Amino acid sequence: MACETPATQTTTAEEGGAATISALHPDIIQTHILTRLDGPALAAAAASSSQLYALSSQQHLWTTLCHATWPSTRSPRIRHVISGIFPHASRSFFSDSFTIPRPTPTTVTRQIMNLDRTPELISAVDLHYRHKLILSRVVETETVSGWFRCSPFRVDILEPKESVQTPMRYPEDDSACGEMGEDLRLSWIVLDPRGGRAMNVSSEKAVSVERHWLSGEVQVKFAAVVGGERGTASELALCSVGVTCVGVEGGGMEVREGWLEMEDMDGMHLNGRESLGILQRALEGKRENKKERGRERERWGEFGKRKRERKERMKRAEGRLDMLCVSLAALSFAGLFYVCVLCR
């Protein structure tokens, strides 16, 4: 009995089948599909096939994503650094800035402590309120002078008398302060223009919103925990990013300050030398994916807990040392008294 050849099945639209992505023209994929994806989705598409990898690796896609996510990257200085220094230009920058540094302490070596290989840091800062951009700045900071390395580390994005108007309303109570913190999003990306690395040192959401009881200023704080030198007070360091807002006539608000500082587990503000070493290791260290960004507030709380525990341990150690000193003094006095009695 002759065998019948099965009918060839097709997946064309005319026969009701689903066309595969490879059947589409590359221009259609690139223009109408890939441009609608965010960074993680675009990276996932690139990993699905060789064709999509080639199409998803086009620099203009990643450049557009960077500009949409962080408007400060439109700055000529930032664009020059990204295109000229980063290995895969905008794609590498997006990968660095979208992930967060893993807070892993390291052992410092002479090679790691070569601070001169980072003569400059660039800060790209974007502040959004209810998904609308209200502040964007690029600040360049030299790191080679003695003044920078010996002074407390601090980067300001506004001049002393500069202010930025915002659509925010002044919070009259704690509940309004909490809502204000939920509506604000701050991105503070630190770039190493020589090493071609970047990282975001700001939490996705505010970790605290405090209103000063006397001046009425509202401080909104964001934070990221990074690894420092193992076995020291800076084993974990806190990148503290803050924005100071003040009320204006009519019930509105304006931004007066925006800053970045670094703090160790003793609550001490680190100087430029210490901060630069920690930032170097964090820039070159391992990263965690976007899913971990929701844990930044939790890590901030854990950092505060470890700081309190360290303070309590130091108090107990100081108490034991005081007791030892008192005991030695008492023994010395008793010995001296005994000698005096024998000499009579």
Rank of each mutant, 00 (worst) to 15 (best):
T10A: 03
C343G: 12
V125P: 05
S95N: 05
L191I: 11
T20S: 15
R185F: 05
A282K: 05
P101Y: 00
M323V: 03
S136A: 15
A44S: 15
S95D: 05
W213F: 07
M253D: 02
T35E: 15
L238A: 07
I33C: 00
M199A: 14
G231L: 00
S203N: 05
Q280C: 02
D38V: 13
R117D: 06
E142I: 02
T104N: 03
E296G: 06
S50H: 13
A43P: 00
I85M: 06
S50A: 12
T107D: 15
G294Q: 03
V341F: 08
Y53M: 02
K305V: 00
V164D: 15
Q30S: 12
R130E: 14
F337D: 13
S90E: 11
T63Y: 00
A223S: 13
S57W: 08
S332A: 15
K291H: 09
G335I: 04
M262T: 07
L55M: 05
V218T: 10
C239T: 09
C177P: 04
F94H: 09
G227K: 00
S95G: 06
R320M: 03
A7D: 02
D27E: 14
R297A: 14
H88C: 10
R194D: 09
A44R: 15
W300E: 07
I82D: 09
P119W: 12
Q165F: 06
I134Q: 11
